[in-house]
């Protein structure tokens, strides 16, 4: 006859068995690589080399003092700084419009919702090609339209002062649909009787009702959207790689593209690792902010 384990021990064993596979995979596939990258970022290691030298913070110093490295950091910050608020605000406006429209003309609202979501579902590389054609300096639809209404054509992707902002517009376009869906879910979760109460309490117009009910109750959603948008924006890569390759003259270079170029084109694994660590720190910081604030804000739910 087998002796049964004490229930506590048995439960602990079961828990461990359930948690172990995922934990193991996470350790091997995420934590270990992060650790290796962190170590590499303090060396001058190059792919294929047999030796490497410890150079402490030299890679980080390079990234922040070198003209090209700093360009990538600043460009990324500008990109995030524009895409995060713009894509959030636009998505909120679109969601509010569609939410109201869904009651009166559900068919049209459905069509619009799908078209806004399209960029999210589509492959960004393929979409970037479409943008490339739209933005073509001479035969692109954008410039032709500008000329047609009497404005001058712009070198959208080849002007050093313009290219980053062109990319931010594309970045906003590809993010709005996703954010809109999040906002629509947030709006649907607001109980209708709160709007009734607000109206009874003296909120005379939609504006007052928005500030009394919609905005505060969307708070957690808005924060989530902001953080999600920021992390997505920090990762901007596909449009840079397909449309500009960071050019002209590094005017549209970004962190992740620089990481790719240094690591996989120039094989500077140490430098690339340092860029990765900076990127990682930025995203980690955002995630921490999200957790902190969400825990406090969501409490009333």
């Amino acid at each position: 006859m087998t002796r049964r384990l004490p229930p506590r021990v048995a439960a602990a064993l079961t828990d461990t068995a359930l948690v172990a596979p995922a934990t193991l995979a996470m350790l091997v596939l995420i934590f270990l690589p992060v650790l290796i990258v962190a170590v590499l970022s303090f060396t001058d290691y190059q792919f294929g080399a047999e030796t490497f030298r410890w150079i402490r913070f030299e890679n980080y110093a390079d990234l922040l003092t070198d003209r090209i490295g700093r360009r990538a950091v600043v460009n990324t910050l500008i990109y995030v700084g524009i895409v995060m608020p713009a894509a959030t605000l636009l998505a909120l406006l679109v969601a509010l419009g569609l939410h109201g429209m869904a009651r009166r003309t559900p068919g049209l609202a459905g069509v619009l919702r799908t078209s806004y979501f399209m960029p999210v579902a589509a492959t960004i590389v393929a979409m970037a090609t479409v943008w490339q054609m739209l933005l073509h300096p001479s035969i692109g639809l954008v410039n032709q339209s500008l000329v047609a209404v009497g404005l001058s054509a712009q070198p959208w992707l080849s002007d050093r002062g313009l290219v980053l902002y062109t990319l931010t517009v594309i970045g906003i376009w590809e993010t709005v649909g996703y954010n809109m869906v999040l906002f629509l879910a947030g709006l649907a979760a607001i109980p209708a009787h709160l709007y009734d109460a607000a109206e009874v309490d003296g909120a005379r117009d939609g504006w007052a009702r928005f500030w009394t009910v919609t905005w505060p109750l969307l708070g957690p959603t808005t924060l989530f959207v902001l953080v999600i948008t920021a992390t997505r924006a920090f990762r901007v890569f596909e449009t840079v790689a397909t449309l500009t390759r960071g050019g002209p003259a590094f005017a549209s270079d970004t962190l992740v593209y620089a990481m790719y170029r240094e690591g996989f084109v120039y094989f500077k694994a140490g430098y690339s690792s340092a860029i990765t660590m900076v990127f990682f720190a930025c995203v980690l910081l955002l995630t921490l902010v999200q957790f902190r604030v969400l825990n406090r804000w969501v409490h009333y739910r």
């Binding site: 009734d196 109206e199 009874v200 003296g202 005379r204 009394t212 009333y300």
Partner: peptide
């Protein structure tokens, strides 16, 4: 409803979840 100046108590109470009771009553 605001123009008619009526007050209403809802079945689900419809208190604003993000406000304290004081803020709810003051609103």
């Amino acid at each position: 409803a605001a123009e008619r100046n009526i007050a209403m108590v809802f079945q689900s109470y419809a208190l604003y979840p993000h406000m304290t009771v004081r803020q709810n009553i003051t609103l």
